[in-house]
Design a protein around this nucleic acid. Sequence first.
DNA 1: ACCTGAACACCGTTCAAGT
DNA 2: ACCTGAACACCGTTCAAGT
Lengths: 209, 209
Amino acid sequence: MTKSKKTYHHGDLRNSLIVAAEQLLEQKGVAALSLREVAKVAGVSHTAPYRHFEDKNALLVGLAVVGYGRLADEMETCVNDQPDDPSKQLSSSLHAYIALARKHPQMTNLIFGGVLKNLCYEGDLAVESERAFNGLLRIILNGQEAGLYIEKETKELALLVWSIAHGFSMLITAGQMGELSDDEKATQMMVSNMGEMIINGIGHKNHNS
Amino acid sequence: MTKSKKTYHHGDLRNSLIVAAEQLLEQKGVAALSLREVAKVAGVSHTAPYRHFEDKNALLVGLAVVGYGRLADEMETCVNDQPDDPSKQLSSSLHAYIALARKHPQMTNLIFGGVLKNLCYEGDLAVESERAFNGLLRIILNGQEAGLYIEKETKELALLVWSIAHGFSMLITAGQMGELSDDEKATQMMVSNMGEMIINGIGHKNHNS
DNA sequence: ACCTGAACACCGTTCAAGT
DNA sequence: ACCTGAACACCGTTCAAGT
């Protein structure tokens, strides 16, 4: 019933290749992802991908753009869904970041694990990266304008928050968090606690300044 | 003059392979690291490594153990070098973590980028991982005993600090920090600021509780 | 324009054979 | 014990050829 799959010319091969690649990625990991197998899953010869991607690396970048785009979408949703509650924007962005990484661990590794040839962080990938970070920036700025956060440079606060969300995500993805990795509930609890600690700090407040 | 290099039996091939592997790793990245080339650099046939490592993955794990060991050493040094100043222990551990990642970006990718078969986070690698985290735990505990930090569970504070150090490191390594990646001085400034924000929080302190 | 099949250099891994 | 060389299945990439 779909309009593809009948013609000799595939029609939407570029996209089919990315879909197939993601399927294999989450199945077997970044290291075991081969261009030839992607082509086989997509139902074409192993040289067909070169019509749509210069390289294996170019396909991986294309796939990473999709993944990073999802992250950017999540960040924007956090801003738009609770436009009047900057505090909730921040906590939901933390939860969303980590939930997405937990849902697509291999995609997280692909984007941030250093497999992509570094030069390719220009172009579409850089666009999505900025879009995601701009979401975070806006969340912090909203909070600052509401008088919730200190007046330090917005970018510095955003980088701190990003580092926390990213670090926690990568540690879970890398299996460094022990039991926590598998425990959905405990993870969310931990994320909530971290959100609180970012706001209040871990220092004791018995100074009288 | 060295005692190796003369006998037919290499003597310390296991170690030579790891040294060669690290050299190639930082040179060409995780994705382009091949077992055959490692063997060639070490000066042996391409099947010789199988006497010392079950697998290509096993060699990578062996290499990662070395890298993770360095991180653990750094954390322990931070504790031992300033035994009476928990505050300095914390800030120096942050700086050390990020400096090491900046110095060995590809090693950081190897350890945390999801290339290693996950099951291998048992054994020696788990030992070094615990050693590093224990350093952080002790640093936080020292601060709590000195009355510097809140009385929340030590492990939670340590995980927060670890996430920040790790996230910032990975973002730099992945080229996500723009100009900052190359600017040594600006990076250190940013790390110092993050250290301060962890202690004091980013929330405005105009509540009168 | 889009796809294929043969070809090339390289890879990880196995195994019988050498010292 | 430790290392080698041939062999196998797989990989990324190129290219002349097909529709």
